[in-house]
Design a binder for these strands. Structure first.
Lengths: 358, 358
DNA sequence: CGTGCGACTTCTAACGTTGAATACAGTGAT
DNA sequence: ATCACTGTATTCAACGTTAGAAGTCGCACG
């Protein structure tokens, strides 16, 4: 009850940050008792606990993370490495990962790799300084073998399969992905059922041999082949709106004339939106002249004009699984690395003939 | 030259993480020399440095952040607290902050507050655990006086003026903002020059008395008053696409009939896109029937249909200034808190009669 | 030949925290 | 009164790093 005269629970600010010892002195107990109060490590008499708590509030004490981490050997920090946060899909992903991590008492640190191989290598090694408990990685430039080879002791979970071995070989690290081939088949079947027959694909990249784009293209090609329809693929420089615009701008003549394409499967929503932008500029109507479909289920597509049909991954499940796998390895699990599939669903909207939607 | 037999620069992985002492043993030098090599603290002979470096690479040694931070009293971590990363503006902002921080040797940790007052208070106190060197905060629920009062010893920089005192009083913390009143006047003038006379505003919020939305509304109202035109404001539940859609959906009759509004100033791009979505659903054409303008300069607006006129803040400058201010206070500057303005520009696109654009 | 310098080592201490082991009451049973 | 016991509270040591001081060694230079 030795409140100071200014009354209330006044926060006292001093130059130096208070340590557990300052609190101990203020509460007239040993610093270990303060630690026990903070961490619930050992039983503390109610009256003592209150006294300590009051001192903590008064001094504005908060445990120092460096000291704690050093002692505990854990930082409760997880990094999420993605190509670029401005891409809506990765923002959605980051959001889901942040939530999943927070639910488990972890904090997320975001690293943008810009698909730079050198940077990805540094990330795989754990950021030059040993700070993290785990890493969730959405690589773009390097394969998972490269990364695991470069990699350090850090528990690492991969997202997307820029890195997935096509040959069915064992994964070098845990992966969490949607079934890209299957979803691409569904998406393409959807267009065929809607009566389209000259269906293009946008989003292969020269530099990739087994990435997401390649797998989606594979599913697309399988569906077309089953129906005896012709396939045609267009490369995209980047998986972005400008990338989609540039790619389609370069081949716009394929959408006019007698053999004009009447549908376009795009490797993601951004490419689709960039493509639609150019199609519109060329006087083509979506979906009347060209049906368009994308991936990722970003909110954009629900408000675009026309609204965009898309394959939406179950990001919540993906993030939770990724975080659990990473933290599992933090706690010493040594289960052999696996590829884990999470769900997806096709959301039909205007761009393939669906309704406006909400 | 005591390479092991497997040759090359093989990465050796052991159970325990190597420490500076392990490296020292491997390189046959004192641990102090290793430290000197890592930090460049003292001159080391080139040959020795190489030997140490080889040991570092071989063992995969990376300095332990906890130990280092504890000793140095710095973590080189900065937090960016924003309402939600999925909102494109905040993703753009995060990107800019991450870049600016990285250029200064800092890493960014992102916290989503969801505009929750309790959470914002915890953030202002520095996250329960003393981990950060500084905080860049885009508050939504609380005023800056609340936050500074709740706040701890952490250098804090505010973005946006959910918190800016209207009375011209001294700021309680550093702020970095664009001139919202002026930019709103420009935006509104732009519509007036384009011949619009019944101009609505979307994006006031009941709970705010001096936030961004309020300031933009102020500039809007000033411009209309100067031209003797009537003003009408619509509240928005959230600054999001669904928020904009819901808000305009509720007042859609104001856009039809004899007194129909012919322009809409929206407090941000997301509201504008949500609004355009509903207008389209109601059979109204943008810009022919209603001109629409937003804020933030997000990429969406450059690919929407129609493309969206917007006020784009200079995010690069904003982020750099914010980071510099935060780090300045880390290094002990005690300049009195100020409001710093950064530039903005009006980008005219289709939604107010401009061209399609790139 | 000593002096001075560069390169390195050794030693000490400290950052703030917490697990383990230990001390100390007070209580109740014997 | 003695002993064991339980509930509290304390002391000790260690996590990995780096700053500083002081000392060692060899070599070049005056």
């Amino acid at each position: 009850m030795s409140e100071d005269r200014t009354g209330e629970v006044a926060t006292v600010r001093s130059a130096r940050r208070p340590t557990v010892k300052d609190v101990a002195a203020a509460a007239d107990v040993s610093w270990k008792t303060v630690s026990n109060v903070v961490n619930g490590t050992a039983p503390v008499r109610a009256s003592t606990r209150e006294r300590v708590q009051r001192a903590i509030d008064q001094l504005g004490y908060r445990p120092n993370a460096a000291g704690r981490n050093l002692r505990r050997g854990r930082s409760r920090l997880l990094a999420l490495a993605i190509p670029e946060i401005r891409l809506a899909y990765f923002a959605d992903l980051a959001h889901a990962v942040i939530l999943a991590a927070k639910a488990r008492g972890y904090t997320v640190l975001i690293d943008e790799t810009f698909a730079d191989p050198a940077h990805e290598r540094v990330v795989a090694q754990g950021f030059q300084v040993d700070l993290l408990d785990g890493l969730i990685f959405s690589p773009q430039a390097l394969s998972d073998r490269d990364l695991v080879a470069a990699g350090g002791r850090l528990p690492m979970v991969m997202l997307g399969e820029a890195t997935l071995p096509l040959d069915g070989g064992e994964a070098a690290a845990d992966h969490v992905v949607i079934d890209n081939v299957a979803s691409a088949r569904e998406a393409t079947e959807h267009l065929i059922e809607a009566g389209r027959s000259r269906i293009g694909f946008l989003g292969v990249r020269e530099t990739e041999t087994n990435g997401t784009g390649v797998l989606r293209h594979t599913g697309y090609a399988m569906a077309l082949q089953e129906h005896g329809l012709p396939a045609v693929a267009f490369p995209a420089p980047t998986y972005s709106r400008p990338g989609g615009a540039a790619a389609i701008g370069a081949v716009i003549e394929r959408f006019t004339g007698p053999d004009a394409l009447d549908a376009l499967v795009c490797a993601n929503d951004l490419l689709a939106i960039g493509a639609m932008h150019i199609l519109r500029g060329a006087g083509l109507r979506v979906p009347q002249d060209v049906a368009v479909i994308g991936w990722d289920g970003t909110e954009d597509g629900n408000y675009s004009n026309p609204t965009l049909t898309t394959v939406a991954p179950d990001l919540g499940a993906l993030a939770e699984l990724a975080v659990d796998l990473a933290l599992g390895r933090v706690d010493g699990s040594t289960a052999s690395p696996q590829v884990h599939l999470v769900g997806h669903r096709l959301i039909v909207r205007e761009s393939t003939g669906g309704a406006l939607g909400g």
